[in-house]
């Protein structure tokens, strides 16, 4: 992995929400590195900061402080239109509830990022056909989203995320609204994409799928409490914190469950 090029580099990143004079630290001093071809799962309990972190990585939100670089370029000071451009060219999103536009057909949904990029029509159409074939949805190109099953909709969402050849694919609970069969199918698809070289960063609650990734990052109360390399055959985390450290980070009342979560996480895929 050391030979691979760094794609995402996050250091000392904080996100604080202010509500009615009360400050909430959603992310605290986050340091994360994601290399090209990586497949990272972000896990943790609700409110742990997973989605906030994914939103910041996807440039849907801005950090309060810290640095965030994509391919060595800091993106924290980008304007809204620059961020939109980076989202369009470098990032593909897959959402839990698919977020397909209901009034558009499958092919129109998939075509949208290319329209925003200003790609010529002929090229757009060729790309759409190609990517729909890739996710086995080419026969449904003229269908509206409500004419598709959940799994099919998520495949379309994956196609839309992939059509612009993004550097990074972000998936937020991609199986959250799917049954196990469709969930497995989508996860299989993501694994295949990663094998083809696509860098993936996924938030999931489902520990069954975390083992499919190469690395698992655990967040708790806005802090990284575990960063495990799933490829290591010995089942130990290269960045594992012991129970004593966990106990320092977590409130007493939930220490035991958090510890077990860390243990569970570290053993996935072993």
């Amino acid at each position: 992995m050391t030979n691979k090029k760094t794609l995402i580099n996050i250091s000392k990143l904080n996100k604080i929400y202010h509500t009615d004079g009360t400050a909430t630290n959603a992310l605290k001093d986050i340091d994360i590195t994601i290399t090209q071809g990586d497949y990272v799962t972000i896990q943790g309990p609700s409110g742990g900061g997973k989605s906030t972190l994914l939103s910041i990585i996807g440039l849907l939100d801005k950090p309060t402080s810290g640095d965030y670089q994509i391919s060595g370029v800091s993106v924290t000071k980008l304007s809204e239109s620059q961020m939109a451009k980076v989202r369009n060219r470098e990032i593909g999103f897959i959402f839990q509830d698919f977020n397909l536009i209901g009034d558009m057909t499958v092919s129109q949904n998939v075509e949208l990022p290319l329209i925003y990029r200003g790609i010529a029509k002929a090229t757009r159409q060729a790309k759409v056909i190609e990517v729909l074939k890739r996710v086995n949805m080419s026969e449904r190109a003229k269908h509206l989203p409500n004419q598709l099953s959940g799994g099919q909709q998520q495949r379309v969402a994956v196609a839309r995320a992939l059509v612009g050849n993004p550097t990074l694919l972000l998936a937020d609970e991609p199986t959250g609204n799917l049954d196990s069969v469709n969930g497995d199918s989508v996860m299989q698809l993501l694994s295949e994409l990663n094998e083809q070289g696509v860098t993936i960063c996924m938030v999931t609650h489902d520990s069954r799928y975390a083992h499919l990734s190469k690395r698992t990052i655990n967040l708790f109360d806005g802090q990284v409490v575990d960063n495990t390399d799933n490829e290591q055959k010995n089942g130990t985390s290269n960045n594992k914190v012991d129970d004593r450290e966990v106990a320092e980070l977590m409130p007493n009342a939930i220490t035991s469950s958090a510890s077990s979560l860390v243990k569970n996480t570290s053993t996935v895929g072993a």
Partner: peptide, 16 residues
């Protein structure tokens, strides 16, 4: 709102 957010996430600028 969700539609506009999706469009924004796919790269649509405010002007667009």
């Amino acid at each position: 709102k969700r539609e506009f957010a999706v469009r924004a996430s796919l790269g649509a600028s405010k002007a667009r």
